[in-house]
C-alpha cells in the first residue's frame, strides 16, 4: 500500500489539511475526508458533471483528479456560492425557475452556470445549452435550467 500523503487545500476560503492515500480521488477527499458533501458523485468517470468544482479558478471534475494533485489549490464547491443564508443570484434563479428537481446535478450545474456567465454575461440559449452540455440532468429536461441560467445571468449583471 502506498504511504499516505498530506494534502492541504483551501476550500471556500478555509484552509484545511488531511492525510490520504495517493489513490484517493479529489471528489472522495472533499466529500468524505473534508465533509463537503455537496460535491456529488454521479458517474466517477468524468461524464456526468455532478462532481464539478472550481479548481484554481476554472471548473473541473473532481472525480477526474486525485486529492494529492490538489495540494496547495484553491477550490470552490457549491457551498461557497451562498453568502451565509443569502443565496447566490444564480441559486435564486434556479429556485424561481424550477431549475432543479432531485437536486443531484444541481451543485455542478450551478458552478458551471456561473463560469458560463463569466464568459458570456448575456448568454444566448445556444450558448447556455452548449455550455452545460457536460452536465447531465436526468430530471428536468433542461428547459427550466436554461431559463434559470438566462435569468441568473441577468441578476448577476444587475448585481455586479
Amino acid at each position: 500500500m502506498a504511504s499516505k500523503v498530506t494534502v492541504t487545500v483551501t476550500v471556500n476560503g478555509r484552509t484545511l489539511s488531511a492525510e490520504c492515500e495517493p489513490r484517493r480521488t479529489l471528489a472522495d477527499f472533499l466529500r468524505q475526508t473534508l465533509g463537503f458533501t455537496g460535491v456529488h458523485l454521479g458517474c466517477e468517470h468524468g461524464v456526468c458533471g455532478a462532481c464539478t468544482i472550481v479548481f484554481n479558478g476554472a471548473t473541473a471534475r473532481s472525480c477526474c483528479m486525485l486529492a494529492v494533485q490538489a495540494d496547495g489549490a484553491e477550490i470552490t464547491t457549491v457551498h461557497g456560492l451562498a453568502d451565509g443564508e443569502t443565496l447566490h443570484p444564480m441559486q435564486e434563479a434556479f429556485w424561481d425557475n424550477h431549475g432543479l428537481q432531485c437536486g443531484f446535478c444541481t451543485p455542478g450545474m450551478l458552478l458551471r452556470a456561473c463560469e458560463l456567465v463569466e464568459e458570456f454575461p448575456d448568454p444566448t440559449e445556444e450558448q447556455i445549452r452548449e455550455g452545460i452540455s457536460g452536465n447531465i440532468c436526468r430530471c428536468t429536461g433542461y428547459q427550466f435550467i436554461v431559463d434559470a441560467i438566462r435569468d441568473g445571468a441577468q441578476r448577476m449583471r444587475q448585481t455586479s
Partner: peptide
C-alpha cells in the same frame, strides 16, 4: 504520466489502468 487526467483517472477508477506509479506533470 498524469496530465489532465480526463481519461487516465477514470481508467484508474475502473481499474483498467494499473500503473505502479503516477508521474504528475501538472
Amino acid at each position: 504520466v498524469l496530465a489532465g487526467g480526463q481519461s487516465l483517472v477514470p481508467m484508474l477508477s475502473m481499474r483498467l489502468a494499473r500503473p505502479s506509479v503516477l508521474v504528475d506533470i501538472n
